[in-house]
Design a protein around this nucleic acid. Structure first.
Length: 585
RNA sequence: CGGCCUGUAGCUCAGUUGGCAGAGCAGCUGACUCUUAAUCAGCGGGUCCAGGGUUCGAAUCCCUGCAGGCCGACCA
């Protein structure tokens, strides 16, 4: 019988207390003292606030003598104590406001404990308090709340980074990217520009939602767990449903579901969708990201270009009050209309080659001449895509629609009304990157089936990103889908562009990170076994009997050490065909 | 996956040729009733990312690993 339940809390308790810093111990001590003074550091009752820092700052007028009975709450961000009086800053959702605390005013009687002990000693920066008082302007001219009453709302047990500022210069800023992303809550508390970026992000969503609703379109939700990951070419995450005993994929796109809804009779549907792609991560890619997809019946891609221009204009105006937005060294102007450039013209312009009507072999030759690497799995579509990606894409800094893509690289797109080699598709390029992707949706079920079959051939050729055949989607199309235009826009990228953020991590609250590993402390005997396992080549697996002999430990010591290693998740014991083995984790 | 850089106190960072672990802010003690990076005096605080190695001696040199950043590759 093992009893991990009994042992584990004990060690954890011990460990967590060993790790406490001096400042953390002092704060825990203050917490205790508050309770001894009859002050609950985590009160249950609601605290009725009647103003915010921004309210007071925007609307206080000395001559009007308003805000004479305000109640505000927030986090204590700085303190300047001068004997019997003190200034401090309180930070609420809207920002910071200075408060003035006078000993004899918060302690009118003989007992000065509330000021001398509670305010001066037991409260710290980072604590959340509520204050009741009146607004006034100090001799130095700063709008301040003169405190009459102070309430502890939440004691903070960890010291915050102290960021100071003078004349626009920031001192000791909390800048370590790892800590900022892992502890976004701290980042948000001490770096106001970070909060601003995320407020803008929400404003982008609200602006778009409002526009779509004005148009009468319908916001919907479609499955994230999909039996067939369709609608895009990308490697999916795979998971497993236990009760159904079947694999499920995390969606890489929601396109095929939204089109089913168009078949079902909705004439305009949209979804802000979290998509998941099991691919590389870099400055512009996170494994989970958000795409807004919209489908409108009886429209085509030309209409959708104008609609997309309106989105960009409205979003820029809502955020900045102008269509001109700073992005790195460029100023991007989202004023409509944006130029429309065909893919053929774009390639002609930047490479000199005319790709129209060229065969696969001819295209491969052009790639060779341009110094673009190719391989056997690449079809016509992919070759053209490579040329555009290598030689053209990065040139489109100002918003530009690239239109009329080759049919091979757009399996869900209607063939061009004038040229069957092309499709009615556009991508909106901004700052050399794809921001939106749209087409006149393919609604010919027989054509769609053939396109899927072409994808299947690509897949057999070795393209592991080619699309699966979604039979139910084809069945839906066979019932008839009205001519429809659809568009997808990368919300993370849009937010980056609109907030001048160089990295996707700056526009995601919680970007994906490898887990923090806690240093595991091992006993002498545990280390001995650990080292034996570590030295055992790459596999780091050892037959249990052999390991025990090699460790030269007594039965008792061996037992204790190996149990210690398994309970700390350093190694595991497995019962295999070959007998018991020990593997390093 | 490859190259470069980073990891030292709660935060921001120094740390010389390998020779006692440092500063500012924060913290603690005290002074101070309109300050604002408040000020003044004093004090405490370290798994130098982890594990090995070289050495009389390692934050520093070497190896391995972990985490992060930037660039590139792959990838839309």
């Amino acid at each position: 019988m093992h009893s991990p339940v009994k042992e584990q809390p004990k060690t954890e308790y011990k460990m967590s207390h060993q790790e406490l810093s001096e400042q953390e111990l002092i704060r825990r001590n203050s917490l205790q003292k508050l309770r001894e003074l009859g002050i609950e550091p985590y009160p249950a009752a609601q605290y009725h606030v009647n103003a915010t820092s921004a309210d007071i700052k925007e609307n206080y007028k000395e001559e009007a003598n308003n805000f004479q009975d305000v109640v505000i709450a927030g986090r204590l961000m700085s303190r300047r104590i001068m004997g019997k009086a003190a200034f401090a800053e309180l930070q609420d959702q809207e920002g910071r406001i200075q408060i003035y605390v006078n000993r004899d005013e918060i302690c009118p009687g003989e007992d000065k404990t509330l000021y001398n002990e509670v305010f001066k000693k037991l409260l710290d920066m980072g604590d959340i308090i509520g204050v009741k008082g009146f607004a006034f302007i100090t001799q130095m001219g700063e709008l301040t709340v003169h405190v009459k009453e102070i309430t502890v709302l939440s004691k903070s047990l960890r010291p915050l980074p102290v960021v100071k500022e003078k004349e626009g210069k920031t001192f000791d800023a909390f800048t370590d990217p790892e800590q900022r992303y892992r502890q976004r809550y701290v980042d948000l508390i001490v770096n106001p520009q970070v909060k601003d970026t995320f407020i803008k992000r929400t404003k982008i969503y609200n602006t778009m939602r409002q526009m779509f609703n004005e148009y009468g379109y319908h916001e919907v939700e479609t499955p994230i767990l999909q039996p067939i990951p369709g609608g895009a070419t990308a490697r999916p995450f795979i998971t497993h449903h236990n009760a159904l005993n079947m694999p499920l994929y995390m969606r890489i796109a929601n396109e095929l579901y939204l089109k089913r809804l168009i078949v079902g009779g909705f004439e305009g549907v949209y979804e802000f969708a979290k998509d998941f792609r099991n691919e590389g991560m870099d400055r512009t890619h996170n494994p989970e990201f958000t795409v807004m997809e919209i489908y409108v019946a009886y429209k085509d891609y030309k209409w959708m270009m104008e609609f997309t221009e309106e989105i960009c204009e409205r979003v820029a105006m809502a955020l900045h009050g102008t269509t001109k937005v700073q992005l790195g060294e460029h100023i991007i102007d989202y004023k409509a209309p944006f130029p429309r450039v065909t893919m053929t013209d774009a390639i002609k312009e930047y490479t000199g080659y005319d790709i129209s009507g060229k065969s696969e072999a001819e295209l491969r030759e052009i790639c060779d001449k341009l110094g673009i690497e190719t391989d056997e799995t690449m079809g016509k579509g992919k070759l053209i895509d490579e040329i555009f990606g290598e030689k053209c894409e990065h040139n489109y800094i100002q918003p530009t629609f690239i239109i009329d893509y080759p049919v091979e690289m757009s399996p869900l797109t209607k063939k061009h009304r004038d040229n069957p080699e092309l499709t009615e598709r556009f991508e909106l390029m901004v700052n050399g990157k794809e921001l939106a992707n749209a087409y006149s949706e393919l609604n010919d079920p027989i054509d769609q089936r053939e396109r899927f079959q072409d994808q299947l051939k690509l897949s057999e050729k070795g393209d592991d990103e080619a699309m699966f055949i979604d039979q139910d989607f084809l069945r839906a199309l066979e019932y008839g889908m009205p001519p429809t235009s659809g568009m997808g826009i990368g919300m993370d990228r849009l937010t980056m562009f609109m907030t001048n953020s160089p990295s996707i991590q700056d526009v995601l609250f919680f970007p994906q990170m490898k887990p923090e590993k806690k240093a595991v402390e091992l006993s002498e005997d545990e280390k001995k076994i650990f080292n034996l396992l570590q030295d055992d080549g790459e596999k780091q697996t050892y037959p249990l009997d052999e390991l025990k002999i090699d460790s030269e430990l007594s039965n008792k010591k061996w037992d204790k050490a190996i149990k210690g290693l398994t309970s700390k998740k350093v190694a595991k014991v497995e019962n295999t065909d070959a007998g018991l083995t020990v593997t390093l984790l």
